[in-house]
Amino acid sequence: MILVPAILAGIGLVCSLYRRTLIGLLIGLQLLVLSATLMFVMSGAQDRATSANGQVAGLWVVLFGLVLTVAGCAVSVRLFFLKRRASLDDVRSLRH
């Protein structure tokens, strides 16, 4: 059963590497976050004593995904403001 989040993690990595835009990268990272959440929940789900810990760890990962989205959207707004497009190739230009 834990193969499901493992496959989801692989798809998330593929999406992160295949997409050429920041939003596409964010979608891939969100898939990885979903995978990590499921992994924690399923790891703790077998035993009632560990279920709460798994859920709390999953909650942290979900909220971390929210932080990731906020930061990624801020970078894409900045990039669009400077370059009028949000390609991943332009991210390096934010250093200057």
Binding site: I2, L13, Q46
Partner: peptide, 29 residues
């Protein structure tokens, strides 16, 4: 290829967990 490798690594790393196989989840808290 990288994604499939990653899936394999995660699977190998987690297959010793009790939840790796089929199980009936306990009632949650």
């Amino acid at each position: 290829i990288l994604g499939m490798s990653f899936t394999s690594i995660v699977w190998v790393g987690t297959r010793h967990l009790p939840s790796a196989g089929y199980f009936e989840p306990a009632p949650g808290p």
